[in-house]
Simulated scan of single mutants.
Amino acid sequence: MRPAARGADAVADAATPAGARVARPAPVPKAGRMADPRRAGLSILLVFLAPALLVYLGLTAYPAVRTVLDSLFTIEGTERSFVGIANYRDLLADETFRVAVRNTFVWAFVAPVLDVATGLLLALALYAGVPFARFLRVAWFTPVLLSYVVVAILWMWLYNYDWGVVNEALRAVGLGALARSWLGDPNTALSALIVTHAWKWAGFNMVVCLAAIHSLPSEVLEAAELDNCGWGAKLRHVIVPMLWPTLLNLYVLAFIGKMKVFDLVWIMTGGGPLWATETVSTYVYKRAFNWNTFDLGYPSAIATVWFGVVCAAVMILNRVFRSRDRLEY
């Protein structure tokens, strides 16, 4: 201790009554592991991560690994016979699987364009201030809250050949020749399902696009209006380029969802007619549980291949859609 500090302590001790304790300041903790709450020990981290890790391992990781292992076997009940890659060789010659892949790719690449475009148009309508905007915002978002069962049954009624709203409207305007069994015709069944799916999810895309539009800088939009930029030009040259990252993210999300579409197809058409709406998910279910083949190895091989296809497609899309010139505003 320095002399000045030693002298100050002596004066303090002299002024303190005998037998009384001098209150010393609490020692400042050294910079260590417990001083920073962000640097917790491994045991504390495990306590908080354990529930989520157990759920992930039990419901995601283990089923995925088990599916890959089962694809190397022929499984009939409790009997398992190792066949190696025989299931994958059979998959290459499976004509139904090729049709299911083609239909799923149509779903995954074409349908998201319709979903995102519809959501963007609805958002622009609300942003422009159409009449009854508050009511329309709720009405357009309501289908998102409905289950696939309700949506499927509702649109099966709309597509009914005899009394469905679609055919009745065509007959009312003199286009009765265009009326058909929309879900029973192989040429229109897949398109009818895509329209139904777009109707259900357009509200979700609308909300996201509307929030993105409201977050755009008002200075840019006002400058476009001062330059007498019409709605079409402003949409093409100002709004869409600034919304491009949001639209791409919506497209990727829709792509992932449609690569595994099952509910709507199974309820409305069951994959028919004549495999026109068969998807990979419905085909896996049929081979595993619906065709009484009693072999879980082959559908496991289909699921394994499709899992790899989905992962590869998502990585390719992320790389293709990665914005090199990031927009700053």
Rank of each mutant, 00 (worst) to 15 (best):
T246N: 08
A20P: 01
V68I: 14
Y148W: 15
L145V: 10
A125F: 14
F97N: 00
G271C: 02
I239V: 07
Y283H: 04
S215P: 01
V240T: 11
P131T: 01
R102S: 14
E95H: 12
V101L: 15
G230K: 02
F48E: 02
A23D: 12
T282I: 01
E328L: 11
R171N: 15
L114N: 01
P37Y: 07
N249L: 15
G176R: 02
V265R: 08
R33G: 01
D325S: 12
L45S: 09
M34G: 00
G7N: 11
V47R: 01
Y283V: 03
E222H: 12
M34C: 00
V261K: 07
F307H: 03
A224R: 08
D325Q: 09
A211G: 13
W231K: 13
G164W: 15
V151P: 04
W199F: 05
A4H: 13
S323E: 13
Y298V: 11
I85M: 07
M1A: 11
V305L: 15
T269W: 04
W107K: 03
F255A: 04
A12W: 00
T277H: 07
A117F: 14
M34R: 13
F204Y: 10
V310M: 11
P217K: 03
G164S: 14
G174L: 05
A26L: 07
G257A: 05
V22N: 03
V261N: 03
T118M: 15
G174K: 00
T67Y: 07
A31V: 14
L175K: 03
A128P: 01
C311E: 13
L264F: 03
S191T: 09
L42R: 03
R2S: 15
S281C: 02
I75K: 01
A303M: 08
A52E: 04
P37W: 11
W291S: 15
A123R: 05
F294Q: 11
W157A: 10
D36L: 10
R21M: 15
M206C: 11
V55Q: 04
T67S: 12
G58T: 06
Y62A: 06
A233F: 02
Y329P: 10
F262Y: 15
I302T: 10
F289G: 10
V151H: 06
W201C: 08
V68Y: 05
V110N: 08
E76A: 15
L250F: 00
V310F: 01
I44Q: 09
Y285C: 05
N292K: 05
W155Y: 10
A128N: 05
T196C: 07
A288L: 10
L91W: 14
N318E: 11
V320A: 10
I239D: 06
R39Q: 09
A35V: 12
